[in-house]
């Protein structure tokens, strides 16, 4: 059984630094998760709260959901989500409430509307264009007639010269 003190000094330093890094990581990730201080009547309500807070984006911090954000507005919106769940509103009603105030931005998965249609199908359109280009290039490559790659007499002579007299 080797203890930390059996290790030589450089190894000991590496070990200590690594341990510190790991501890820091643990502490940081611990403090990033927001602590739920809300009370629910049922587990189902709590699960709906978690799900909604995970799927709604914090309008202030841009790339964090309500669960992961410490921003003041995220805190307020979590409180609103809790209030609406306790008042018996459905997920659709809560999402509509958020949409009427913050628009498409509030959803990580935006609704399919005229304004968001390019967002939803843009990649597909580019994929189709790319596929079409790739297809037409490969078709053209396989359609080159054999006659075009036949050599004329001077090229034949040069080929023979390169390959040497034994080949014909």
């Amino acid at each position: 059984m080797t203890s930390l003190f059996d290790l030589r000094v450089p190894q000991r330093i590496v070990f200590c630094v690594a341990t510190c890094c790991l501890l820091t990581l643990l502490i940081v990730s611990e403090s990033l998760a927001q602590v739920d201080t809300f009370e629910f009547d049922t587990i189902e309500q709590q699960q709906r709260f978690r799900q909604l807070s995970n799927e709604l984006r914090c309008p202030q911090c841009q790339n964090a959901n309500l669960t992961g954000s410490t921003g003041g507005i995220a805190e307020d919106l979590r409180r609103e989500v809790h209030r609406m769940i306790m008042e018996g509103m459905t997920n659709e009603e809560i999402e509509q409430f958020m949409f009427e105030r913050y628009g498409d931005f509030i959803f990580y998965r935006p609704r399919l509307r005229a304004e968001t249609i390019l967002l939803w199908f843009g990649p597909l359109i580019f994929l189709i264009i790319g596929g079409f280009v790739a297809y037409s290039i490969s078709r053209r490559a396989s359609n080159v007639p054999d006659a075009d790659i036949e050599l004329d007499s001077s090229q034949q002579a040069r080929l023979k010269e390169i390959l040497g007299p034994d080949q014909s």
Binding site: P59, Q60, G71, R101, G103
Partner: peptide
């Protein structure tokens, strides 16, 4: 104080 009117207006800061 609680930002209720702010939420109705879509304020985020």
């Amino acid at each position: 104080a609680e930002g209720r009117l702010g939420i109705d207006l879509g304020v985020y800061g």
